[in-house]
Design a protein around this nucleic acid. Structure first.
Lengths: 146, 146
DNA sequence: CTCGGTGCAAATGCTTTGCAATGTC
DNA sequence: GACATTGCAAAGCATTTGCACCGAG
């Protein structure tokens, strides 16, 4: 996944939603997101930007994450905690999560059959899906053995 | 679903977790939960209790909802909003949600095959499931036609 | 030059907490 | 009696907002 391609998607999104402007902050935040692995929250992303010498405010981070969400470049989740968690969505397959309630660890999985069931349900209910999130809460192998 | 049966489950839960006491507030809150249909949030449950003449504080409502969650008598969800939503879990089948991002409406659905896929995934990953929540976000038929 | 965007700090709103009084066991 | 639970109000905390300045188009 090249940063340029993601930049183009954001530019296109901004262009198509007239009056949205291309600012250096927005692209700096996008770059920081692209460097992440796994999940992150707004606060830690903010601190990473600051420590990398990028001058942004928390307000702009929250704002821009919302923008990236609409542009389809990040996904947003709420697991058990009060903090919202994000992850880059660009170039990653649709996937779901096993959340360990003991250690907080998150295991990802992909299932074609799950995707198919979702399509069927949406068809039956005449619902147009945009995104989805299956979270299975429980205990991971390591914690169970403790 | 009889209130008594739910009371018994709560009593059993309290008994099995030593030092937890049976208080009138806890049972009053459980009764209020049993009277709900669909989803509710802590605040609205609190106001309903108050207007029914039950003397409780918000703190106790939040506290007790946590207890009922652990006892398996309610489920807790976080959809798109910042407020947590609950629903009674007693005597209801496991089900999932289509969340309309336009009107906030929530459509429930049940799928045996989905349950089976979850079991399979948990087996593969050596994960012990406790609860799960599939949310499909999108647009409902009514909003799409507007 | 026009407005949308930014940074700050203050505001918001859900949820939790501290503490004295209360009631269960 | 001991100590878990309650009620109240205050504290917490993630997120949003108001507003003056800044800068993209």
């Amino acid at each position: 996944m090249r940063a340029e391609a993601a930049h183009d998607i954001l530019k296109k999104y901004l262009r198509e939603n007239r009056n949205l402007r291309s600012t250096p902050e927005r692209f700096a935040i996008l770059d920081a997101v692209l460097q992440t692995q796994g999940h992150f929250d707004a606060e830690s992303l903010y601190y990473r930007l600051i420590s990398d010498g990028v001058k942004v405010s928390k307000a702009t981070v929250y704002n821009t994450l919302g923008l990236l969400l609409n542009a389809g470049l990040v996904s947003k989740y709420r697991f058990a905690e009060k903090t919202s968690r994000y992850e880059k969505a660009f170039g990653r397959p649709q996937h779901h999560h096993l959340v360990c309630l003991a250690c907080g660890d998150i295991i990802e999985f992909v299932s074609d059959r799950l995707e198919r069931i979702q399509e069927e349900v949406c068809g039956e209910k005449d619902f147009t899906p945009q995104s989805s999130s299956l979270q299975i809460f429980g205990t991971c192998a390591r914690c169970r053995k403790k």
